[in-house]
Write a protein that binds this DNA or RNA. Structure first.
Lengths: 197, 197
DNA sequence: CCTACCGATCGGTAGG
DNA sequence: CCTACCGATCGGTAGG
């Protein structure tokens, strides 16, 4: 499938509907109706409903990965707290940049067929590993308290992902405020409460 | 609808399927098949598919509310940190006690029709308000850092709810370990990093 | 991008 | 709890 304007419109509209009603709760005709075309006409642009979900999920996964890569590159060699802070800020930026797509990525990837679902599962694990590695380092250096790394990374990552269920563009809290607050909360959660003594 | 054994079995099976595939992704026949009866036979026990979702969601909402009530009652008059700790522990307990139902409550309440959905939305707001109130108090007393209360309560509550997507009964981390870790993380996230000086 | 159409499945009812 | 059945809708194809 070539990347036409129409194709991009379809993905935008689908992201919005999948975000609101979920993948299974959205029909191909719902998407078509939002574009003022017939349901069957959609198939001139996409191979299947699932292919649209895949396009949204894969692209968004790439954004998260690229943002985390950039954060890691920018903070290489620095202390764990700074590295985690940038990972958190990168994640918040990707979510706020496009909540609908981020929401579909976070919530609807389970609706994919076996193979693509396993691909995403693997990439999510990889992504989580970045957080775990930084937390591990922080515990090793004494910057972070000796918490259970699985629980801590799950706590922080699900909090970050939870942003998709409450962030509203144009709301009182913009991306900058949320990034600051979330970076502070995540770091404070991990930081050893009695650092120097 | 009277509460028969069959009725309870239906809700248990439906919780499991809704947890795995979502409400919209689960058919009435899927539920019936898991019970070894015909799809139409389900209607001898339930009025509609949505009524089953409502039963699960409403009961689970009641559990969260009751657990928070008990936590609040047990810590009335105490310091904000202790009160928040017990709210966190209560939440973790309800999730781990029945992940499937908790997961359906957290993820699928949006699939309800307008009226029940608004009822749940209202009760979720009410529930969040308990967290906000304690956080507000903690900031007022100086026990907590002066974070944005909306961001902080959303961060913590979505982290708590995120447990439904990774908790596995019988896994390495049991309810006690998770409750300890999550209570620590939530309190540390809020605590003023330089309390006495 | 449309019309016309496909088989399959959806939630649900009637009547036992 | 079953059989038999309902209209509506599902994702998708053929052929223009």
């Amino acid at each position: 499938m070539v990347e036409t304007t129409r194709r991009r419109e379809i993905e935008a509209v689908a992201s919005s509907l999948f975000h609101e009603r979920g993948y299974a709760g959205t029909s191909v005709r719902d998407i078509a109706r939002a574009l003022d075309i017939q349901g069957a006409s959609l198939y001139a642009h996409v191979a299947s409903k699932e292919e649209v979900l895949w396009a949204i999920v894969d692209r968004t996964a790439i954004r998260f990965e690229a943002a985390a890569d950039a954060a890691a590159a920018a903070t290489a060699g620095r202390d764990p707290a700074s590295r985690l802070e940038q990972l958190v800020r990168a994640h918040v930026a990707v979510v706020t940049e496009d909540v609908q797509r981020a929401s579909v990525f976070v919530r609807e990837w389970r609706s994919l067929a076996r193979e693509p679902r396993m691909d995403i599962a693997r990439r999510r694990d990889e992504y989580e590993r970045r957080f775990r590695a930084v937390i591990d380092d922080g515990i090793a250096t004494g910057a972070f308290a000796a918490v259970d790394v699985t629980a801590a990374s799950a706590f922080i990552l699900t909090a970050l992902n939870g942003l998709v269920s409450w962030y509203r563009p144009g709301g009182r809290l913009g991306e900058a405020e949320i990034a600051d607050a979330y970076a502070h909360l995540a770091l404070a959660a991990l930081r050893d409460s009695v650092p120097e003594r």
